[in-house]
Amino acid sequence: MKYMLLIYHNEPALSETEREECYTESTQLARQLKASGQYLAANPLHPTATATSIRVRDGKRFVTDGPFAETHEQLGGYFLIDAGNLDEAIGIAERIPMARKGTVEIRPVMEIAGLPTD
Rank of each mutant, 00 (worst) to 15 (best):
M4D: 11
L6W: 05
N10I: 01
N10L: 04
E11C: 02
P12E: 12
L14H: 06
L14M: 04
L14A: 07
C22M: 15
T24I: 14
S26W: 10
S26G: 15
L29H: 00
L29R: 00
A30C: 04
L33C: 02
K34F: 08
G37I: 08
G37S: 09
Q38C: 00
A41T: 10
N43L: 14
P44I: 04
P44T: 08
L45K: 05
L45E: 03
H46G: 13
H46C: 12
A49V: 14
T52R: 11
T52P: 06
I54L: 15
V56M: 12
D58H: 11
K60F: 10
F62H: 14
F62D: 09
D65L: 13
D65R: 14
G66H: 06
E70M: 07
H72F: 01
E73R: 02
L75R: 08
G76A: 04
Y78P: 00
L80V: 12
L80H: 07
L80G: 08
I81C: 01
A89Q: 05
G91M: 03
G91P: 03
I92P: 03
A93C: 10
R95W: 00
R95D: 02
I96N: 02
M98T: 11
A99I: 07
R100N: 09
R100K: 15
K101G: 03
P108C: 11
V109N: 00
M110C: 12
E111T: 15
E111N: 15
I112L: 08
I112S: 06
A113E: 15
G114K: 09
P116A: 11
P116Y: 12
P116G: 09
T117D: 00
D118C: 07
D118F: 15
